[in-house]
Design a protein around this nucleic acid. Structure first.
Lengths: 188, 188
DNA sequence: GTCTATACCCGGATAGAC
DNA sequence: GTCTATCCGGGTATAGAC
């Protein structure tokens, strides 16, 4: 039997920290956000934060854990069997939509990139390279590689742009439009 | 009559500082680069740096001055008369190519963005918004706005991707491929 | 123009009481 | 689980000699 106490504590505080951190990191970047900033928003002191997380980097890691396994699964799909470009682009759009604040953090803050790379088996550079390769197809000419870069850019840029105005979720119509644009980019 | 002294000094040191800063900022981000890092690379102390620049932010500002007027000119063109999308996309590609390291700094480090916004008449957010509006055309539907975001993303993403492998200058063939991809994105 | 030395602050992180 | 108090390091910036 679960008794609900007056003010929520425990696991709940941890989630609040993560939510606050996600916001602030997205706004000011990882480096630009201090532990004190998070604590202030949380309504506690910095010391209290360290009860929940051993270090600032671990907050970032916790935030990225979920999208990272998703990203990893995607890469595994690439290693085994070639998915069509539609499937791949589709997955990339979903990934960008699911973790939009994180996407911003990841490719915006070099310091953050270095930190998350320590938590990953493959560096984020390698991951991006694998995606470009898959989009470019087998034995690609230079033009195909450029088109791959273009399509990749569309999945990120257009998805973030669409979410900017529509708030929380990516509308199906928008998703379709983005996918179509990315495909057009890819195949002349 | 100009006498060339043994070791170059004066104006030259200033340029060296800027070159070093451009490199380091691009690699580690603005926030991630310290004055001491730049001084070390330069072979002097931090104090010497402050003879040439009053503050770290001023180094960034000097670095961005040139591309910023180019960007401003582009926006002015938008205000007066509608250029076709080809012209606009073309200019965006050139801009990305000319200032690739700077482009990285600008949309990667939120702290840097805040700093340069203090030096500009219009915020970089407004500038980007104006470009999206121009690409979307008059009275755009939602789909057109999304396509505009996609095309904008292509000019940046594909240009940076192309330069990654080709070194210093953007090859004409690559430029054409990028422009074609961006246009395809824009018009179904 | 460049140095040595230093002031000053801020960020991350810890100790130990409650 | 949260507090007060504090340490440490590194970062920006300045003073003043050379």
């Amino acid at each position: 039997m679960v008794i609900v106490k007056g003010a929520a504590t425990g696991q709940d505080t941890r989630s609040r920290i993560l939510a606050i951190a996600r916001d602030l990191f997205a706004q000011r970047g990882f480096t630009g956000t201090s532990i004190a900033d998070i604590a202030r928003e949380l309504g506690t002191t910095t010391a209290a934060l360290y009860y929940h997380f051993p270090a600032k980097a671990d907050i970032l890691a916790a935030l990225l854990a979920e999208p990272m396994v998703a990203y990893g699964r995607l890469i595994d799909c690439l290693d085994a069997g070639q998915p069509g470009p539609e499937v791949l682009l589709d997955a990339l759009i979903d990934l960008a939509a699911d973790s939009r604040e994180l996407a911003r953090i990841i490719d915006r803050d070099p310091t953050a990139v270095r930190i998350i790379d320590q938590y990953l088996p493959r560096s984020s550079q390698e991951l991006n390279g694998a995606i470009i390769d898959a989009l470019a197809g087998p034995e690609p000419g230079r033009a195909a590689v450029i088109r791959a870069h273009a399509a990749f850019a569309v999945t990120k840029g257009a998805t973030l742009g669409a979410l900017e105005s529509s708030g929380d979720a990516l509308k199906p119509a928008d998703r379709a439009e983005i996918l179509a644009a990315a495909l057009r980019t890819l195949r002349p």
